Amino acid sequence: MSSSRIDLSLPQLEAFVQVAASGSFRAAAAQIGISQPALSRAIGTAERTLGARLFDRDTRHVEITAVGRELLPVAQRILRDFDSALGELGEFMQGRSGRVTVAALPSVGAALVPAAMVALRRTHPAVEFTLIEAPAEELLVSVEEGRADLGLSVRPAAQQRLRYEHLLDDPMVLLCRADDPLAARGSVPWSVFAQRPFLASAPASSIRPITDAVLVQKRMMLRPALEYPSVTACGALVAAGLGITALPRLTLGLMSMKGLATVPLVRPQASRAIGIVTRIGRTLPPVARAFMAILRSAEARPTMSPAARRLAIRAARAPSIRT
Rank of each mutant, 00 (worst) to 15 (best):
V188Y: 03
P73A: 09
H124V: 07
T123N: 14
A178C: 03
R155V: 13
D81G: 03
I210D: 00
V17P: 03
S84W: 11
S97W: 05
S2M: 12
S305Y: 05
S3M: 13
R53H: 11
R77E: 15
E138G: 12
S84M: 07
F291H: 02
S107K: 01
D179C: 02
A119Q: 14
R177L: 07
S256F: 06
G253L: 09
I32H: 04
R155M: 14
A315G: 14
L175C: 04
G51E: 10
R60L: 13
A115H: 13
G98V: 01
G259K: 07
P209C: 02
R161K: 13
I34E: 09
S187W: 08
G281P: 02
E138W: 08
R96C: 00
I43F: 05
G151Y: 09
S35Y: 04
G33T: 09
R155P: 09
S191R: 14
G51W: 07
I244W: 01
F92Q: 11
E63M: 10
L71T: 01
R272K: 11
V141C: 06
L175R: 08
R322E: 07
R48M: 08
E128W: 04
Q217V: 00
P171V: 03
T45Q: 09
G235M: 09
G44S: 13
H61Y: 12
L50R: 05
A126N: 08
G68I: 06
S3E: 15
Y164R: 10
V67M: 12
A183T: 03
